[in-house]
Amino acid sequence: MSRIADRFENLRKRHRTALIPFITAGDPQPAVTVPLMHALVEAGADLIELGVPFSDPMADGPVIQQASERALRHRISLARVLQMVKEFRETDADTPVILMGYLNPIEVIGYEPFAAAASAAGVDGALVVDLPPEEASALIEVLRARGLDPIFLLAPTSTAARIEMIAEAASGFIYYVSLRGVTGASRMDMQEVADKLKEIRGKTDLPVGVGFGISSPEVAAKVAAFADAVVVGSALVKRIAELATQPEKINADAGSFIASLRASIDKVGAAA
């Protein structure tokens, strides 16, 4: 069983909704990332999504675009991101780490060398935003062969046929994009999300995480009522951006934000 499946199984037994923070590797500077990952776990993160910076992040809103730009000023490559995961693994053998990014940096390395290096570094899954399952069979094969989970997105626009296809292609969990838009937008329709999740659950037993518009402990709690995982990206990255010139304060601030989300989510779990 993969570290991701294992973690979700464990959480399910404890009736706990997973909290998955997203940060961009190397933002605002490389030295911040690994200690921040540990701080997030300390504050209550169950899995970590680590963004691989890309020059043309087409599916991201301004907050995560700018995080990519800050990281790229330090020339953070995919190889460098893998080094960071390896370093994180030295003192955390349990928390699953998922890389989230775009296809081109992987194309440059090559699928098989990427899968080998990611696996060796201790990565557990990869979510390639601009790689739909129709184009993904070659990458899925090499990821699976190395025990890595291919994570896929589902969206409000996904039809029943697409949900089935993606449930087939994915493992680990499925990431439901809660709104029509880019990361960090703020017009989530809670009822629509709940209804769509019901439809998705009718077609797969995989855990379903929800993300793209979760900005506060209140929204996180509402989503936690029906999701297996809550993904928080832009709201966290925005706080990191505000402390870009005082990086020594990032861990404490990000930690307290994650802890507040954790507490809010757990209240829902306790009530359920």
């Binding site: 739909p132 129709e134 997105l153 996904s158």
Partner: peptide, 20 residues
């Protein structure tokens, strides 16, 4: 049918745009 010119072309976008 899927927009390939040999190995080139195709559809590489986030899921939200697949149906549109």
């Amino acid at each position: 049918e899927r927009g390939h010119f040999g190995r080139y072309g195709g559809i590489f976008v986030a899921e939200t745009l697949m149906q549109p």
